[in-house]
């Protein structure tokens, strides 16, 4: 394909062949899978959110010519390659356990009680290979199984819940739900409490800052900006 540049002379745009759900399209090289699909005429109604690799909505799987591996990635973060066979997996059906964070305890059985299927993990490592965030997914499932909530929370911290691990797991585990419970338990029951947070919340509730807030609500954007730039920053604590 050719297009006119500003100066009017013809410039060749490099195109690649991709196959979306089996149908061939020629799309400009360098596009992300998401943009390439839109270029090919698809419209995202679901399966796209932030377009920046944070929301986990745009899970996609693909194979490349001459490569047996099934790759899993984020459509908004992955550049198309010539000969790519791809499809979107915008949603992974998975049950989330029902729990009341105030009523459950963080012990070495909590995770396996809510998600007994983690005991089915065979350590095949497929989840880790599938994770677009490059997390040690198998390791956080293994930590969950042995009741190491802190480790599961730490290893899964960057999970964006794209569901790709869960789609590939032969043990039919919904990893991200397990990880989310681990992080919630960690945050509520295990992580050391931030020293000033509780005091500050109490001060807010007692209305200590009401006056100041009222004042700020009347300020113009310029005034607010000035105030913000001149704010005190507390030194970080170790």
């Amino acid at each position: 394909m050719a297009r006119k540049s500003k100066k009017g002379e013809k410039q060749e745009m490099e195109m690649v062949r991709i196959y979306i759900m089996g149908k061939e399209y020629k799309v400009p090289a360098g596009l992300t899978i998401m943009k390439a699909m839109e270029y090919a005429g698809y419209r995202y109604i679901r399966g796209a959110g932030c377009r920046a690799g944070f929301c986990g909505a745009c899970a996609t799987v693909y194979r490349k010519e001459g490569d047996y591996k099934l790759h899993a990635d984020l459509a908004c973060q992955t550049t198309v390659e010539d000969g790519m066979w791809l499809v979107q997996l915008p949603f992974t059906p998975a049950n989330k356990a029902i729990y009341d964070m105030d009523k459950i305890e963080a012990d070495d059985k909590t995770l396996v009680n809510f998600y007994p299927e983690i005991a089915r993990c065979v350590s095949c490592n497929t989840c880790t290979k599938a994770c677009p965030q490059e997390l040690d997914v198998m390791d956080y499932i293994q930590a969950s199984l042995r009741g190491d909530i802190a480790k599961a929370a730490e290893l899964s911290f960057d999970c964006i819940q794209c569901g790709l691990c869960a789609m590939r797991c032969p043990a039919e585990i919904a990893h991200y739900h397990v990880a989310q419970l681990a992080r919630r338990l960690y945050g509520k029951y295990i992580a050391p409490k931030a020293r000033h947070l509780e005091e500050r919340v109490k001060e807010i509730e007692e209305g200590k800052f009401d006056e100041e807030m009222k004042k700020m609500m009347k300020m113009s954007v310029t005034q607010l900006r000035k105030l913000y730039n001149a704010r005190d920053i507390e030194p970080e604590e170790d």
Binding site: C121, V122, S123, Q142, R146, P170
Partner: peptide, 23 residues
């Protein structure tokens, strides 16, 4: 380390259940 999978799989063809031990 990983859960060994506890009970050893006895089927001739069930290598999947032996991965964890080998790993």
């Amino acid at each position: 380390w990983y859960c060994c999978g506890t009970v050893y799989s006895l089927a001739t063809d069930n290598l999947m259940y032996r991965l964890a031990a080998i790993r």
